[in-house]
Design a protein around this nucleic acid. Structure first.
Lengths: 183, 183
DNA sequence: CTGGTGTATATACAAGTGTATGCACAATTT
DNA sequence: AAATTGTGCATACACTTGTATATACACCAG
């Protein structure tokens, strides 16, 4: 993918500055080119992933919502450590989306978690205790996977460090990248 | 404000269902009316607060982003309880935006916090300790205010309950409502 | 009965985006 | 030198929203 040209950066900043939409002619005048060039550049910016939306009153830059990065970890620990493990994640601002194990018979088993604060973890642990339910990881002698969601990659790195201090984390990787380059 | 008519509800659900934009003519055909009626209804819906945006390819319903509610609390506790207090908030998924005190001389003093996980609280406490800085609340014998941010009102209610169990919370209210109706 | 009001239809027009086509010029490659 | 590519300009056209205007019809108050 080619890098953004100066004019395209200028377009982005102009759209980001003004809250009201800017017409193609307006942008063209500011950049000293014609509307068609702006249209072309807008198309290129869109192709590059920038969320520009067009209205009958001009172009608007969609406020780029802070999207959560998706990560995955493969961990192994005793059942007594689950609460510590989950709390470590949420303490670092990392959301625990689900838990997943690879069962030799049933294949891929997945359970939704959606834990994002200690209160969520507490409620989850209480449900487990009250229902006398067994953890998914008990099926595979403690090895299981978690899908994580976090705004900052550094947060999950910090959580991993803390867990590695207890020696439970085996692998972690970015869910969107290829799974080959694990840390 | 008049209540939504059936057709307007139909328009909203149609827009909510289809991910791609729907033209006014398309919507008119579905509702069995003309385009002008749809245009009128869209205007009424927009006036009622619904975030419908129009593009050259039709109408789109802006995905109503889960916006954080803003709340404020007025609390009083000893300096040793600050970490407990802050952890209580983040444990319930409530973000602590800032701290604020009413100083008799300087007036309104405000300090940014932006704590959303235990790790953030930990770092804040460490900075306080290392810099030997005094808490803002020390200026007012422990009484201070916090601005909070939370997705669910129930989360802040739960945090308030937990704090009231230790007897520190005096008032809390919704920052957007009038400050008169405090709990 | 008469007039006002709300609703729906039909038509027309302005402004905007998106697309296509043609032309010109510079840079690069063959 | 010739061909290709990239870039910009000009024009035209299809499609959309938004607005204005005129007309028709039902309903209701006086």
């Amino acid at each position: 993918m080619r890098e953004r040209t100066d004019r395209q950066r200028q377009l982005l900043s102009a759209l980001a500055d003004s809250p009201e939409p800017l017409t193609g002619s307006e942008l063209a005048q500011r950049c000293g080119v014609t509307r068609q060039v702006v249209v072309h550049d807008i198309a290129l910016l869109r192709a590059a992933g920038d969320n520009i939306l067009s209205t009958p009153r001009g172009y608007r830059l969609q406020p780029t919502e802070p999207k959560m990065g998706r990560y995955a970890v493969s961990v192994n620990h005793s059942p007594e450590m689950t609460e510590v493990e989950l709390n470590t994640f949420v303490d670092c601002g990392v959301q625990v989306v689900d838990v997943q194990v690879e069962h030799p018979v049933y294949g891929e088993l997945r359970g939704s978690l959606d834990l994002s604060s200690r209160r969520d973890v507490e409620m989850f642990m209480r449900r487990i205790r009250e229902d006398k339910a067994s953890l998914l990881s008990s099926l595979t002698a403690g090895t299981h996977m978690h899908n994580l969601s976090s705004l900052h990659r550094g947060d999950v790195e910090e959580a991993i460090r803390r867990l590695q201090a207890v020696g439970v984390v085996v692998y972690w990787w970015d869910s969107l990248d290829d799974a080959s380059d694990a840390h």
